[in-house]
Structure formats: C-alpha cells, structure tokens
Nucleic acid binder design. Structure first.
Lengths: 335, 335
DNA sequence: TTGTACGCGTTATCAT
DNA sequence: ATGATAACGCGTACAA
C-alpha cells in the first residue's frame, strides 16, 4: 500500500521559487504582509507543481480542523427517506458555504467509540447532532471538549448541558388541535410518535394542552413510529377498537398519509366522515387526496440556525443555549 | 478561539504509565508484540485520562487517512429526497463498517477547488463519486493521485480513465418497454431524464432498442428531470399536446408517481385507459394505487460494490474497471 | 517584508 | 519486548 498522496510539499514549492517555506505558507494562506510581486511568482510555481496543502499537517500545526461534523443516526434509509432531513441539511450547507468550513456528514456507527474518536480526534471543530437516541453521558463527554449543537431539544432536559435548535412542536400541535376543536370536533384521536422522541412527546403535549384549554377530554391515543407503515397499523388498531372519533391527528405527515389510506380503504370519506391532520408539511402533503392539513416547521431555517450556532461557538462567541423556531398551521382540505 | 482539543496526548499517557510513547502507541494500535500485563496497565491509564488519538497527527505520520469520501452533488434536497440514494449509501456504509475505514459524506461545493483540495489534501484515501455533472478533466486530475470510483458510468466514455460501478439501465429500460409491447401497446410515450445524466441516456436508449427490435416506431418523448414535480409537468405537457398513447414509461419512479397523479386527476384509469411504468423500484412504488410496474436496480449491491472497489484500490489490489449490475423487471398492476 | 527554528501528536526505524 | 529518535508537512512566534 504505497502512499498515494501527491507528495508535492510546501518545501518543494519554496525551493523551486527560491524563497522560504514560511513565505509560501503565508502566500497560500493569503496573509497580507507579503510582496505582491513575490506572491505572484510563487503562485505560478504553486500551480505549476500542482501543490495542494496537506490538511492533516495543517490542522496539526494550527490546532484547528476547518470542518464541522454532521452526525446522523445509523438508520441510513430512514434518514434519506425523510424530506425533513434533506431540508435540514440544505439549511446547514447553505450557511456553511463561504464560511471557510467544510461539512462532514458522518453516519454514526453503532460503535459509540468510533464516533467519539472521530469527534474528539481533532478532525472537526464542532459537531451538529440529530438528537434521536443519544445517551446523555455520551453527549456531555462530547461537549466537554468540542462545541456541540443539537437538532431538536435534548431528551433529558434536567441537565441542559448543550446548545440546541428546536422547532415549536408543542405549539404547532396545539394549533392544529385547536383548529380541529374549532371545526366542531369533540372527539379527536391522536397517533403519537415513538416514546423516545422529544419531538413526539412535545406534540402529544400540545394536543393535550389544547384539550385542557378547551375543557374537553382528550380522545383515544395510539402509538406510532413516524413511518407510513406505522401510521397504517395505528389507524387500523384505532378503527378496530371501535373508537368513536370524528378526527385524527397524526404526529407526522408520513403517519397521516398512512392513516388516510386506511380510511379510504374502509370507505370513510375525508373530511366528511373523519378529518385527518398531520405534522411536518412534507412536499407530498399538498398532493394527497384530499390535501393534508398539517403544521409546517421551518427546517431550512433550523438547519441554518444550527450551522450558525456551531460556527459561532467555534469562533468563541457567546450563543444562546436554546433556540425554538415558530411553527405554522397549514389548513388544507383534509379537515 | 482557543484550541478545544482534549489535549491529552500519547506523551502524557506514557509518562503517567511510566513507559515510552512508542509502547503506548503500539498498545493503542493493537500491535501484538507487547506484554499483556503492561498493555493492561497502560489501558487503565488511557481510560483514566480519557486519551483519544489525534487523527491528524496519525495520518500525517502514517501517510494514510483511514477514511473514504463519498462526494455527492450540490443539490442536497434532491439527493435526500430520492430513496435511491439512501439505498446506495446504505450499501456503501454496510461494506465500510468493520473495514476500519470511515465514510465521510461530502456535499460538493460549487467550487471545484475546494473539492479537489479536500480530496487531495490527504484527508481521505479514496473517493466515491456520483457521476452526475463531473468534468472529465477534473476527474482525471483526481484519479491521478487518488483511487476514484464512480457510481454510474462516466458520461464521457471516450477516455475510460477511472473505475465505476453501474447498473444495467439500458437493459432494464428495454425489458420494461418490451413488456409494454407484449401487453399490446403500440404507442408508448416516454418521459426521459435530464440530458446530462448517463443513466437517463441509457434508459432512453433501452426504450428505443425495444422499439427497434419490435419494428415499431417510438412514441412521443418528453423531457423530465427525475423529480416528482417534473413528472407532473411532463405528463401534463404530454396530455395537453394531445399525444395519443396507451402507455407511458417514465425514466424513474418519482416521475412515474407524478404522472399517475396527473392521470387520475384527469379522470383516466390506470392501467385500463393508460398504463404507467417507472424505473428504480423505490419503496413507495409498491404502495401506489395501483402498484407501479417498474425496474428494480440493486442499489444496495451497487453501493457495496462501490465500497468494495474503493477499499480494494486503497489496498493496492487490482480491480476490474467497469462493473455493470443486472436490473430486474417488476410487474405490478399499473401495466 | 522575509527567514529561522521550534512544535503540533503520531508512526516507524533502529537499536537494545 | 521496549525505548530513543527521526520523520510527517505545516503554522507561527521571533528575529532580522
């Protein structure tokens, strides 16, 4: 296994140009205190030799990596299947561009050791994590030696040890539930998300809040898992149990879409027989029949805020610890 | 901006354990020629101090990075919206795990310089590229100093300078078109993919091949862009132009799904009034109404083959330059 | 403005 | 089996 690396080094450029290594370094890094004529001459040599800085050496010497890691959970297929993540990443990448920092997307291996080695190994200056299933102890170990920003709130709020950017899940769920109540529904079922998801918990809470504020008792609540198939299963369970409800609020759009399929197959008309609402406003939510009432979350903005926070922390600036972005009710024809 | 890095070094561990740096290095790297008792003692210190190897220093000294880059095109939203990519990445990641190599997903900035600096900067030992829009000159520059493997065939086949793993797009398109012809269709429209995509070109060619083999003239061909919205637009254009066809073959499933929506909205019955076929076999293709006839491409296997090739090249092994994986016709109820 | 020289944390070679 | 010690390629005081 021979070393493939291009092998043309600062030293070689310096020799060829008849200057010192330090000078070439300055020129390559755009330090202003250098004679323009000399810089020009050196740059010619740089191009001619095809010099490319060795990033490992650079970060070893400079003690900074010039990169931010985006750590995504192991479940690759789900990650890529959900448009929500795409929007988030687009927002992050947008802010990152032109910052001089690189974005490394890392698919977290099951082995947390590998993950920590990577983050603490000096290859990145900060990390953006997707909060899904992250051990608190692991998290605090990370943030002890590296700026860490979470997408979504920490699941364990007792020890708010790190920065995060969340969206107002609770408020959004309250809006949509209130909307259903205002439409006259008095018996609203909910398909909730996974137990370990803070977002799912918050959406459930918003649903409960709206009921309490209206003095109305909550309807049946069944468990779901944020997938379309899970929505199908939950809806079938709901109907099979003979629960009497005139509306169902699914904790995300994928489950809402699965629910709509079940209702249609059972001959129920939406929204006349039963109304359906979701959460996320994925692109296809506008194209379902009928179009889905849902809650829009500003994913791109969330991504941008995450990146901004990470970069600010790297720069040593003060950053507010928790940021919660507003959500918006999108009323369509399914309610 | 203070250096955040954990600062606990091999040297410190060595001092604390009363051994030399070299010994600690050997233990950390699992070199067998070391006294088990000593190793045990040192490992205690390693944990106690929370030592984590500095990866920059390691790759500088060892002249290898222990990582493979996956370079994806700039269009983040499209990338994440398409389950095909998810499967590909899952396949890559699956092979990579346990190889000791890390997978860095890099979203290529518009600036090719940044990309090349990154790939040639010694932070990765090999690169897997998605062939979409890559300049030939750029490519050959990369592969001159780094093993490069392409997902999909090179767009410019004249100079087969690099390794690639493709699927049999042409064959798959021919299968599905022949299937439609065998069903009795004599006028089959095609919604093709983007001009600059080799996969799109191959699928179009397969469609033409099948017609030629049957001695039947191809139907109308309209342009698409591999997105669902693009499929909607293309289908509408097709119908508005009053093209008479009894079947439509979309170059990928997302466009086929968009097309089905348009047909349904216009009151056309699938497959009675008009048949629809796609390409990719994304998960949701089985859940459309009616389920979509399509071509399955072995994306996970393609990903695995890509990773395998990249790792083999890093190891200095010989690798066959072009690999083409078979595709399979999946007949469902839309045709 | 430019050059000298040291250090970054690790691997690897060579003695021992 | 273990310990010195020289690279690895670069940034950056400090000196000139």
């Amino acid at each position: 296994m021979l070393p493939r690396h291009s092998a043309v080094t600062l030293e070689q450029v310096a020799r060829q140009a008849g200057v010192s290594r330090a000078t070439v370094s300055r020129i390559v890094n755009g330090v202003s205190t250098v004679d323009p004529a000399l810089a020009e001459r050196v740059n010619v040599v740089v191009k001619q030799l095809g010099y490319v800085p060795n990033l490992s050496a650079r970060s070893l010497a400079s003690r900074r990596a010039g990169a931010v890691a985006l750590v995504v959970p192991e479940d690759v297929e789900r990650f890529f299947g959900d448009p929500f993540f795409g929007a988030l990443v687009a927002g992050i990448q947008g802010k990152m561009r032109g910052s001089g920092f690189l974005l490394d997307v890392l698919i977290a291996a099951d082995d947390p050791r590998q993950t920590s080695d990577l983050l603490l190994g000096g290859k990145v200056d900060a990390a953006i994590l997707f909060s899904h299933r992250i051990e608190q102890s692991f998290m605090s170990m990370m943030s002890a030696s590296l700026p860490v920003v979470l997408a979504g709130r920490p699941s364990d709020a007792t020890e708010p040890t790190c920065h995060y950017v969340d969206v107002d899940n609770r408020g959004g769920a309250e809006f949509v539930t209130r909307h259903l109540l205002e439409r006259g529904h008095r018996r609203i079922a909910m398909i909730r998300g996974p137990e370990d998801s803070p977002a799912a918990a918050d959406r459930l809470q918003g649903y409960l809040d709206a009921h309490e504020a209206a003095g109305i008792e909550p309807g049946p609540i069944v468990a779901g898992d944020f997938t379309s198939a899970g929505g199908v299963a939950a809806a079938e369970r709901l109907l099979d149990e003979g629960a009497s409800c005139t509306a169902v609020f699914a904790a995300n759009d994928l489950m809402a879409i699965g629910t709509m399929g079940v209702l249609r197959r059972r001959g129920l008309r939406i929204p006349d027989d039963i109304a359906v609402a979701g959460f996320d406003d994925v692109p296809s939510a506008a194209d379902t029949v009928p179009p889905l009432t849902t809650v829009r979350q500003p994913s791109r903005e969330q991504g941008a805020a995450l990146a901004e926070a990470a970069l600010a922390l790297v720069a040593g600036e003060q950053v507010e610890q928790g940021q919660v972005l507003a959500t918006e009710l999108i009323v369509r024809e399914s309610t």
